[in-house]
């Protein structure tokens, strides 16, 4: 059993939160500590930490929905990539939208990947599996304390 990785899920839809949780459960033998926030402001607040020195639990991956309350997903992304401490955290935009405008904007703001949520649950599990196995197992990630 590998060490547990912290993954931040920014998602306001409880259904999607549950689906993602179920997906991670089915997809990976990797231990994931899923931390969920429900809007953009909460995401920034979490990432900045209570005293502004960074998150209490350093996420190794951020799964970011675009259509979220308060600050939008793109705003959160922009904030992260503009921050010298946060910009190294891989951000996967996970959205229902297949709109080219959304996709281009996300990559312009240096999202690490853009993934469209499939309708089919099995496909969704495949997607989550792909993400976790690549980003949490295959890819080397920057360390939290550099």
């Amino acid at each position: 059993m590998l060490a547990s990785s912290v993954v931040l899920l920014v998602e306001d839809n409880p259904g999607d939160v549950e689906l993602t949780r179920q997906g991670i459960l089915r997809a990976s033998n990797h231990s994931v500590d899923l931390h969920v926030v429900n809007d953009g402001a909460a995401a920034v607040e979490f990432l900045e930490g209570p005293d502004g020195n960074g998150p209490p639990m350093w996420p190794e991956l951020v799964l970011l929905d675009l259509n979220i309350p308060k600050l939008s997903g793109l705003e959160v992304l922009g904030h992260m990539k503009a921050s010298p401490t946060l910009r190294s955290i891989p951000v996967i935009v996970l959205s229902t939208s297949a709109s080219p405008a959304d996709i281009n904007q996300a990559y312009d703001l240096q999202a690490n990947a853009y993934v469209t949520k499939p309708v089919d649950f099995n496909s969704f599990v495949t997607v989550i599996n792909g993400i976790t196995s690549f980003w949490l197992e295959l890819a080397k990630r920057p360390s939290a304390a550099f």
Partner: peptide, 8 residues
Amino acid sequence: RMVASFCQ
């Protein structure tokens, strides 16, 4: 997606 996924 909610309908489809949760039905599945």
